[in-house]
Structures are given as C-alpha cells and as structure tokens.
Amino acid sequence: MRILLVEDDPDLARELADALERRGMAVDRARDVEEGEAFLRAGAHDAVLLDLGLPDGDGLALLRGLRARGVTRPVLLLTARGAVEARIAGLNAGADDYLVKPFDTDELHARILAVLRRQGGYIGETLGCGALTFDIAARRARIGETVLTLSARETELLELLLRRQGSVVPKRLAEDHLFGVGGDLGSNAIEVYVHRLRKRLGDAGGGVRIETVRGVGYMIAPDRTGAPA
C-alpha cells in the first residue's frame, strides 16, 4: 500500500513515515502543495495524508483542486487546528477523515484502512478483528480454525461492523444496510441479528465481541482479555 504524506515539518514527516513504514506501508513525502501536486499527478497512491497548514498554501485548496478534477482518492487530513469549524471545512472540501495532532499511530493506521475499505479503493482479501478473520471474496468468517455458519444478513452485519472497525456503526446505518433504506421493520429487528451474531461468535470460541452503545449503535472489538492492550 502506497501513501502520500504532504507535511511541511521535516521531523514530523520523517517520524510519521517511519511509523507507517513499520506497519507495512510505503510512504512518499511531499513538503508543500507544489510537491504534493507533482506526486499526485504521477498517481499510484492509495491514500493521501494531508497537513492543513503548508508553507506555499492551504492544504484545503489542494484538496478542493483534487476533488474538482474528479480524483476520488481517499484523503485524510492532519490538522493542528482542531476547532470544529476547521474539521467541518475539511470534510466539506472532500476529505474522507481527519485526525488532530498529536495522534496515535495505531489509530491513524486503522483510519487509513477504514477509509480505504469504505471507499472500496483498497480491499484486502480479508478483514480481521482479534482472532476473527473474514474472507471478503468467499464471504466466510472464521475464528481460529473454526468456520462460522452465518445467514446472509448475519454475514452482511458482520462485514459492516468489520469494515467500520474502531468506530460505532449507527443503528440506523445498520438497518439501512441490512434491510434497505426506508424498510419498515420493528425497531428491534437489528437487535435480533446482533443477538444472533453474538451467539455465533461466542459458540465459535469468542475472542471478539460486539459492543452495544445504547442509543447510538454497535461496535466490534477484540475481547479485552484476549487482545493485547
């Protein structure tokens, strides 16, 4: 996977590239808008990490230009501003996600993967969470060596949760995803599927759990006891 990092601070760029490379990503470094544009014209990057404050212009301008040219490549903003307006402006300009400095490299890594998965721009063969792996092409989940037997909707739900790993999947989104937009079901239809999926995961040996954030939605996470901190 190839990442373009547009960041003017040389220390941060070096450390960040180093951290991402240790996680198996190839990183190209651009110091300003001009260099960034040059790299982007050459193409071949799966995602762009864009700093907002650059010496020769605003990162947002570069992003807008990119989107205006119809380039849909995932872009994550790295911002030191953090004010809500700045974040919203970034998302409005066409960013896929944003991270406020300083950030956790694991979280950055996860967000890059999540954005790629959501976009369909980068789909690995498998999605994983703790001991659970999910083969996207075969639509088959397994925990360790145990293959889970799941219904079509259970599989859909699991894939959705895995693709958005690390964030809460709103209940409404899950409902739309499983039953189609506007499908009128009982309000607890999704709970039934979550309940069943939990049971299947538990039966297969656990190591992964579906957390409920009451009033919001669901989230898949590795079991705290089974996973490293």
Binding site: S167, V168, E211, V213
Partner: peptide, 23 residues
Amino acid sequence: AEEVVASRAPAILAGGRTIALDD
C-alpha cells in the same frame, strides 16, 4: 450528543467502561 457519544465510545469501551445515549 449522538456524534459525541459515537466518537468517544471506542476509547471508553476499550478502557473498560460503557457509554450510552438516552434521548
């Protein structure tokens, strides 16, 4: 409130606490 709860939930759950939204 939903946005804040959703954004904070992963870290809170990972820390061994739970969070819920009640409208």
